[in-house]
């Protein structure tokens, strides 16, 4: 079987902040239909790798292949929202920039359970609803590549259900999820990659079997002991 061409690929990425090397020749590729779970302890370099892959941080070395701007959805610890604008105004702004029609914004607000709070400034929303607005922004233009850094943080069970539906609704998309929430998001993974100290330590591989995924998860749990 010929492996599908990756939609996004980072090869031997290195990145330092001052004297601290955060990524050491880290590589990660994700193809259409794949949901990659990126695991690792705090400070392992997951968030930095995702920022580099999103094009928001320049790597010191390595190669990056990614889709054009507008085809990539990225959720990070920062929600990339304007706190003084309402949820609806934020989504309209990002929608207008990526060519999404206005009625899709209304649909996204309903989909993420935000219809009742859509006209309140983001700063006045609960953390959970702010996270939902961030996710609605990320998925608004049905991006080809979705990079999600701790997407279940601050979400209640209903929010996580919506997140799972959104991820599964894009079968031709490539999704990378950096998370510690194996309990709620583990079931989505088609592949598991474990990072430690800026390097990829274990990778169940594209199209890996359940046993290979379980082995990678075990490697992560070993690290966390």
């Amino acid at each position: 079987m010929v492996a599908a061409e990756p939609l996004i690929e980072a090869k031997s990425i290195t990145k330092s902040f001052g004297p601290k090397r955060v990524l050491q020749r880290a590589s990660l590729a994700c193809s259409a239909g794949e949901v990659v779970l990126l695991l690792g302890a705090n400070g392992a370099g997951k968030s930095t790798l995702l920022r580099v892959m999103a094009g928001l941080s320049r790597p010191d070395g390595g190669q990056l292949t990614r889709p054009r701007a507008g085809s990539l959805g990225f959720l990070s610890h920062h929600l990339f929202l304007y706190s003084r604008l309402t949820a609806r105004e934020n989504l309209r702004l990002f929608g207008a920039l990526s060519g999404v029609p206005g009625d899709s914004v209304a649909a996204a607000l309903r989909e993420w359970g935000l219809a009742d709070v859509a006209d309140r400034p983001v700063s006045e929303l609960s953390r959970g609803n702010q996270a939902r607005v961030g996710l609605a922004r990320t998925f608004l233009n049905a991006p080809l590549v979705r990079l999600l850094d701790e997407p279940s943080a601050n979400l209640d069970d209903s929010g996580v259900e919506r997140l799972q539906r959104a991820i599964l609704a894009g079968p031709r998309s490539a999704t990378v999820i950096a998370t510690h929430d194996l309990h709620r998001l583990g079931g989505l993974a088609t592949r598991v990659v474990v990072m430690s100290q800026g390097e990829v330590l274990a990778d169940s591989g594209a199209g890996g079997s359940t046993a290979e995924i379980a082995q990678a998860v075990r490697a992560y749990r070993e690290l966390n002991r």
Binding site: A69, G70, L79, F80, L81, Y82, F94, L97, S98
Partner: peptide, 17 residues
């Protein structure tokens, strides 16, 4: 300053601005 509060400008760049 408002761009830095929630790093909205990064969202703009991601959206294709």
């Amino acid at each position: 300053e408002q761009e830095l509060e929630g790093r909205g400008f990064e969202g703009l760049l991601l959206a294709g601005a």
